[in-house]
Design a protein around this nucleic acid. Structure first.
Lengths: 242, 242
DNA sequence: CGATTTTCATTTGTCTGACATTTGTGCTTG
DNA sequence: CAAGCACAAATGTCAGACAAATGAAAATCG
C-alpha cells in the first residue's frame, strides 16, 4: 500500500483509497486487522489525525469497523446485506430528491424491476410471505389508517413480494427502488388515490401469487403502475391549470 | 441539528448523522454551505478534529464536497448519477465477494434485471446504442483479444443494452448488477466458454433489438443465462471430481 | 481612471503532543 | 485457585499551531 506524493488530493483521501484498493483486491481479507493508527501514520508518513480521517471515510462505507481497547483496532468488515440495503436506500433517496427525476421515469424503473421479480416470486413464494401480504392488505383496509401508516404498509407489502423471489441479491438491488421510490410516489399521489382500488389490486396480486401465476402478477403490476401514473398526471394537470 | 450527549457512539458518527439527516430532510439544500469547521466545533461543543472526522464520513458518501480558501468550506453536494454509479458498483462488488453468494443466485438476479430492460430498450434504443453494440461484437470476434479485453467489451455491450431503455434510474440500478457481476461471472467462466457462441447470442440480441422485438430479446437473454449457468456448473462439477 | 499587483483575512489541510476511555492480559494476593 | 488489580495497548477526544489555498479588498502603477 503506497500513496503518490505528487498528487494534489487530500492525503486522507489517498490513504483511504489505498486501503480500499487493498480490500477490494483481496489483499486484506474479511476480519483482517489493519495496522494500528500509529503504525499506519508511520507507514504513510503522515500524522495520526490524517490516518483517522482516512479510516472514518472507510467506516462510512462500512468497509471497516473499529474496536477500542487492548486487542482493538480497525478490522475489515464483512459487508452484510443489511448494511448494503441501508446505503442503497440512502443513496437512492438522495439521488431522486436532488436530480429532479421525473415521476414517470422513477415510476417506470421501479415497476420494471418489480415485474422482474414476478416469475421468481411465483415459483418460490412461501406461506409466510403470503401471510405478510394479506396482513398488510387487511391493515390497508382499516378506515382510520393515517397516510403515513398506509404508505409504510404499502412498502412492506411490496417488499414481501420482492423477497418472495428468494434471491438476496435481487432483494438488495430492489431495496433502493422500493424503499426510496415508493414513499416518494406516495407523497405525491396519496391525496388523490383511491385506497379501495389499491387494496383491490393488492388483493389480486396476492391471489395471483398464491396461484403461482407470473403473467397475472406482471399484468396487475402494470395496472398498478398505470393507475399510479394516471393519478400523478391528473395532479400535475390540475396544478398547471391553477 | 443536535446530538445526544448520552449516546455511547462516536461523536464524529453522531455529528455526521445529524448533518446527514439535515441534508436528507431538506433542511440543508443542494449547494448550501455548511458552517465552517470551527463554527461546527463550537456548535456541537467538540474539537475541530472531531468535526473533521464527521465531515470526512459525509464526503466518503459524496454527500458534501469541500473547498479550501477564503470562500471555501463544506457544501452540500448534488449527488450525480455518475457518483452514485461508482458507489453502487463498489458496494455490489464487495457484497458479492464477501458473502459467498452462489453463482446461481448472482446470475439469476443479474439476468432478471436485465430482462426487465428489454421491453423499454426495444421501444427506445437509438442508432448510437446499436452501433456501440455492433462495434463491441466486432471486437469480441477478434481472435487475438485478451480475456480481460473480452470481459470489458462484454460489460460495455450489456451496458449499452441497459442504457437503451433510456431511463437513468434504471441504468443506475443496473450499474451494480452489470458492472459488478459480469466481471465476476467472466472470471469464473472465461476459461471454458465458447466465444463464438457468445458472439452469436450477442449478435442475435442486437438483431432483435434493432427489430424492436422485446420477447425475442428476453428469450435470448434467457439463453445466455442458461449457457452461462451450464458452463459454471460444468466447471464446478469438474472441480468436485478432482 | 483603469488595470495590475499586493496584501490580507478566511478556511481547509496537516502536524504535534497530550489526555481520556476502553479492554484484554497477566500478575498479585487472599 | 479465584478474585481483584495494575498495566499496556489501542481508539476517542482535545487544544493549539502552522501551512496552503483562495477570493476579496487595498494599494500601486501606467
Amino acid at each position: 500500500m503506497k500513496i503518490d506524493p505528487n498528487s494534489t488530493a487530500d492525503l486522507s483521501a489517498q490513504i483511504a483509497s489505498a486501503i480500499r484498493d487493498a480490500i477490494v483486491s483481496g489483499e486484506l481479507i474479511v476480519d483482517a486487522r489493519l495496522p494500528s493508527e500509529a503504525e499506519l501514520a508511520d507507514q504513510f508518513q503522515v500524522s495520526r489525525p490524517t490516518v483517522r480521517e482516512a479510516l472514518k471515510r472507510l467506516a462510512a462505507q462500512s468497509l471497516i469497523r473499529t474496536q477500542r481497547g487492548a486487542t482493538g483496532g480497525a478490522f475489515v468488515n464483512r459487508l452484510s446485506f443489511e448494511e448494503a440495503y441501508g446505503q442503497q436506500i440512502t443513496t437512492s433517496t438522495l439521488l431522486l430528491s436532488m436530480n429532479e427525476v421525473s415521476f414517470d421515469v422513477a415510476c417506470e424503473a421501479r415497476y420494471a424491476m418489480e415485474r422482474a421479480c414476478a416469475p421468481l416470486s411465483a415459483k418460490r413464494r412461501t406461506g409466510d410471505q403470503l401471510a405478510t401480504m394479506r396482513a398488510e392488505i387487511h391493515r390497508q383496509s382499516q378506515p382510520g389508517l393515517s397516510d403515513e401508516a398506509f404508505c409504510a404498509s404499502d412498502v412492506t407489502f411490496h417488499r414481501a413480494l420482492v423477497d418472495g423471489a428468494g434471491n438476496p441479491v435481487l432483494s438488495y438491488q430492489l431495496a433502493g427502488a422500493v424503499e426510496a421510490m415508493q414513499p416518494l410516489m406516495n407523497m405525491i399521489t396519496f391525496s388523490e388515490r383511491s385506497r379501495e382500488r389499491i387494496v383491490a389490486l393488492h388483493t389480486a396480486i396476492t391471489d395471483a401469487l398464491e396461484a403461482r401465476n407470473p403473467a397475472q402478477i406482471e399484468a396487475l403490476l402494470a395496472d398498478l403502475e398505470a393507475y399510479t401514473l394516471k393519478i400523478a398526471h391528473e395532479i400535475a394537470a390540475r396544478r398547471r391549470a391553477k
